[in-house]
């Protein structure tokens, strides 16, 4: 009898994103140093670590959003299904359609209705497409567990929803373009505990057919929701390094590195 009965979902461990010796800078500031890790398909990977350890930078490198900031650049390889998204000739716009992102603060477009917010990624992709989006919008809202709450308010402004609803609206907006990977940058840090748990349940639901990478400074959240946990820490020069990467239960019951243990038990520093 194996220890791994049906406790864990029996799922093939296929690599979705492979990060190889990734380095990133903001101008002269070295933000992350030589990070290599493999993100598994249809799993939730949590990235934890103290402030300034480069966890958000790592996340933003996975869909080439890092370089949007002035002076920011990245070096190394990020293989999405085996293809390097940093190879020359790769259009970052295309990468971002395949790897969506949800931000810390809910940021529905204030000038758009609930419907238009969800349809934004489809509508604004090209001037030409004039297809009807109603089906896609409904499906995205359903997947984000928001449909029942907003189906009568589709024409209302997205900013009129509650904080938790706004964040699920942003998730629906990201889902509407059907990305293969969803990056979440502290998606619940601006929400109350109930809305937070709702987002976490939603993540477990979504991960049935997408891959999720979540950055959080809330260790308990990482423990609750993720399958794999990566712990980052800034080195002496201030650049974030990968200290430990493993199955979440292992990291939280028996971390291999002293520094991980110190951080997750609150004895950091």
């Amino acid at each position: 009898m194996s220890h791994e009965t049906d406790w864990e979902r029996p799922l093939e461990q296929r690599a979705k994103i492979v990060v190889e010796r990734l380095n990133a800078w903001y101008g002269p500031v070295h933000a992350i140093h030589d990070i290599s890790l493999t993100i598994l398909d249809r799993r939730i990977t949590a990235v934890i670590g103290p402030s300034g350890c480069g966890k958000s930078t790592l996340l933003r490198c996975l869909n080439r959003m890092h370089e949007v900031q002035p002076g920011a650049r990245a070096q190394g390889e990020v293989l999405l299904n085996g293809e390097n998204i940093y190879a020359s000739g790769v259009d970052p716009v295309t990468v971002r359609r395949r790897v969506g992102m949800v931000f810390q603060r809910p940021n529905p477009f204030p000038t758009m209705s609930v419907f238009d917010n969800v349809a934004a990624g489809l509508k604004l992709h090209s001037l030409l497409s004039r297809t009807r989006f109603a089906d896609t919008v409904e499906r995205a809202l359903r997947r984000a567990a928001l449909w029942d709450e907003v189906k009568d308010k589709l024409k209302k402004n997205g900013a009129a929803l509650s904080g938790g609803q706004q964040q699920r609206l942003c998730i629906a907006r990201a889902l509407a373009v059907e990305p293969e990977v969803l990056l979440m940058d502290e998606p619940a840090s601006a929400l109350d505990p109930m809305a937070t748990l709702a987002i976490e349940d939603l993540m477990r639901e979504l991960v049935q057919d997408t891959t999720i990478v979540i950055v959080t400074h809330n260790m308990q959240q990482a423990a609750r929701v993720s399958d794999k946990t990566a712990f980052l820490l800034a080195n002496a020069q201030g650049a974030g390094e990968l200290i430990e990467y493993g199955d979440t239960p292992q990291v939280f019951t028996n971390p291999k590195d002293e520094r991980t243990e110190a951080y997750i038990t609150g004895r950091f520093g």
């Binding site: 949007v68 716009v93 971002r96 992102m101 940021n107 204030p110 934004a120 604004l124 992709h125 942003c170």
Partner: peptide, 23 residues
């Protein structure tokens, strides 16, 4: 206009000029 809206649009795979015009 807060940078978060620009980022939200860019992260949806919307091009820069379209982000400026539509968001």
């Amino acid at each position: 206009i807060p940078a978060t809206y620009r980022e939200a649009a860019l992260a949806l795979g919307i091009s820069r000029w379209r982000t400026i015009i539509s968001v």
